[in-house]
Design a protein around this nucleic acid. Sequence first.
DNA 1: ACACTGCGGTTCACATTATGAACCAACGTT
DNA 2: AACGTTGGTTCATAATGTGAACCGCAGTGT
Lengths: 255, 255
Amino acid sequence: MSADAYPGTQAVQRAVTVLKAFTDAQPELGLSALARVVGLNKATTYRLLTALEREGLIARTGTREQYRLGPELIALGVRAMRSSDVRAVSRPELETLARATGETATLEVLADGDVLILDEVMGSHLVSATHWVGTRWHAYATSTGKAMLAFLPNAQLRDALPTRLALSGRGTRTRADFYKELEKIRAQGFATNVEELETGFAAVGAPIFNHDAQVIAAISIGGPRTRFTDKVIKQLAPRVKQAAARISQQLGFRP
Amino acid sequence: MSADAYPGTQAVQRAVTVLKAFTDAQPELGLSALARVVGLNKATTYRLLTALEREGLIARTGTREQYRLGPELIALGVRAMRSSDVRAVSRPELETLARATGETATLEVLADGDVLILDEVMGSHLVSATHWVGTRWHAYATSTGKAMLAFLPNAQLRDALPTRLALSGRGTRTRADFYKELEKIRAQGFATNVEELETGFAAVGAPIFNHDAQVIAAISIGGPRTRFTDKVIKQLAPRVKQAAARISQQLGFRP
DNA sequence: ACACTGCGGTTCACATTATGAACCAACGTT
DNA sequence: AACGTTGGTTCATAATGTGAACCGCAGTGT
């Protein structure tokens, strides 16, 4: 059934399929369930699982009855994160942004509908260390998240959005309103977040495109609403947008 | 050469070997270099790489000449991180610890300078039920608390410690003495608590580290001093330490 | 006590699948 | 212009991975 596509290493492809079968919704799976999900024979699935377990990419629950993603994947993920070239290219831009404004600059990517912080440079104002890296937020309530969502193909956008768009403090936003906001973001090239995620916090974000003109990340400057007045946000927006554009350009993006 | 070990899925094992070849020191590798590192035929390596690239676990540099770990690996890593939270991973270790020793095993984290009990498995000896979960103690007077404090960065340690270090029964301890004890704990990898918290109660605790080598929790075995003689404590310490190490490993910690 | 159904795990004959020596074409040095 | 690289490709060979059918077990409804 599944378009087997290319020749070559089938076992590897299947193994990866097995890994991808573990979602946040289903972080633990039994052998039979897993075989059903990935559409493979139980014996095959079992062999793949044990092979992956030997390598540490798969672990088992205490009772050894269920499987889940293993510790080695965390290590690999961290390494992948570090070696991602968006990160390398963005670093200097984040630093100049943070130095020039005194606020905190972040680099974020989409991961399963959430926004994942890849890198961060603290401004002069805040005290907290850089332990935000690795945390996640709802994409639709962050400046970076919205900046990315706005430039996503429709099909992917639908997957990335949850059914309800909850906001801090205020109630739920309608889908129509949200789409209208995305359109505005597309037009102006940046997105804002004013106390949507957390009261007292505001940010401006702009998208980063790869050589293939696809959104792959976003950067932002954020800080307390007391300093991030509407006027300040308006001043910061073009800076963030330009920094993002420079990064995109370095990644091979040609408008 | 490499002991092929078990039968079964060789391609998968090799594919994982390829992934693991990318280190922080060598985040980008060419085909030939990679083949040399993993000791595989160039053709084989190439097939594995393209299969992995198709799945997004491997990406290529802008010029498409070098390979590196791909974005999908970040997503998988994050998922692995989420699905292996301390509590779930620690559970089985606590259980075996409690069963093997007959004493009560606990999992604790730091919260505002206090130690907070996250989970607990009762041994066969005590009567009290598991309603300890959720209670808090002074970190500096518990085995788990000290185990965590000992491995905390200095800045955080200062925040976590109160100005006075009161002890049950005995008077106040000097800061210098306490730092000296922390140093010892760091050296031996575990901490003890002999009637510091409460007369008649003793415990051994060991720290748990996350993928980023930060202390995030600690486990302990505790019981009445009548059974927890100095000799018994010495016997239990390595067990606790090893259990903690296993948990850390499952969380992605690489010593 | 029963058959029934699900589970994780195992077996083994079979052939699909992965393998690697040898091969290109292209680039940089010498 | 011969050499030593590189990334990428070919193809005959057999080793590798495959999956239907199997096991023992635990739970469940009868």
